[in-house]
Simulated assay, not measured.
Amino acid sequence: MGHQTLLLRTVEKAKELDLPSVVVTYYPNPSVVLGKKPNFKYLSSEREKEELIRGFGIDYLVVLDFTLELSKMSAEDFLEKIMIKTLNSKHIVIGYNHFFGAERRGDFNLLNSNKTTYGYAVELKEAVLKKESKISSSLIRGFLEKGEMEEAKILLGRNYHITGLVFEGAKRGRTIGFPTANIKVPEDKLLPAIGVYACFAKFGGKDHKGMVNIGHNPTFDGLGLHVEVNVFDFDGDLYGKEIELEIVHKIRDEKKFSGLDELKNQLTKDKEESIHILNFD
């Protein structure tokens, strides 16, 4: 929601000034390159980010390759070389918690003190609050890591998405009437808390209702972390295809069952609850 206000304001101001709207971002995340968070997990892939930004009506997305060399560029050089000489910025909208340049010295104050020199205007977007908490990616991560999908949705403005390729699994689900597609999710994608979720599965240009288990399959080998989706009322080959999961609600925690009959009974209940939830989403 915080980024949404920035994007909306940027589009609004660009139309007012009859100028193209541009968003500048980085990849990889600076904390990865600088070694502060080598196992950093992303909320959105670069493709998802591009689609989301395009959806707000932004004209251009500039993704800077964040390198050690770029991290050493002074804030003044970043402003002059990238924001002025490369992008010819005339009006800059910056978030309260955004910094640029070496040692994170670039901020609203630095931009404001240089606006006359370079002939641009600048405005600061303050934090958007939710129950007295500043909306941030950290707050969203916290909700996802607890499986609180509805709270995350409010801040994201949409359900959380996971995308990956289907690969061949052990095929145990089909023996009890609940075939699953095993999804290979990029290692740097943040997964919600371990558990069973109601979801929509999108492939072939269509949305299908389903439920997804994110966990270790404790009833079987209990090894590794798996993302397995049971797509309701579908009986086809998905191997090698890309599936996008829209995760709606956590139904329950993962648990170990005494046998296949107990597991099947629970999955039947999970499916009924998922259908009820998805019919009202």
Rank of each mutant, 00 (worst) to 15 (best):
G142E: 13
E187G: 05
K130D: 15
L87C: 02
T163F: 01
I140E: 00
I84M: 13
R104P: 00
H161K: 15
T117K: 15
L191I: 04
S89M: 07
K85V: 08
L156P: 10
G101P: 01
F108N: 02
I183M: 11
K189A: 01
G177P: 07
S138K: 05
F99H: 15
L155P: 10
E168A: 12
G169M: 10
A181Y: 09
G106F: 02
E126P: 04
E151T: 01
G147H: 11
H161R: 15
I194Y: 12
P179I: 08
K184M: 09
D188V: 05
D188F: 07
M83N: 01
N97R: 08
G101I: 01
R172Y: 12
I135F: 05
V93Q: 09
M83K: 00
K171N: 14
E148C: 04
K189V: 10
P186L: 08
N109R: 13
G157W: 03
I154Y: 10
L156C: 09
N159Y: 15
K125G: 05
T163C: 06
E126Y: 13
G157Q: 08
E145D: 07
P186A: 04
K115T: 00
G119L: 04
F108M: 02
R158S: 11
N182S: 11
G195Y: 00
N159T: 10
K115F: 00
L111S: 03
R105M: 10
G164V: 09
R104M: 01
F167V: 15
G119C: 08
I183T: 06
F108C: 02
E123S: 05
D107F: 02
L165I: 15
G101T: 06
V166I: 07
P186Y: 06
L110N: 11
F178C: 08
K134Y: 05
I183Y: 08
F178E: 10
T180N: 07
A152G: 06
K125Q: 14
G164K: 05
L155R: 06
T175D: 11
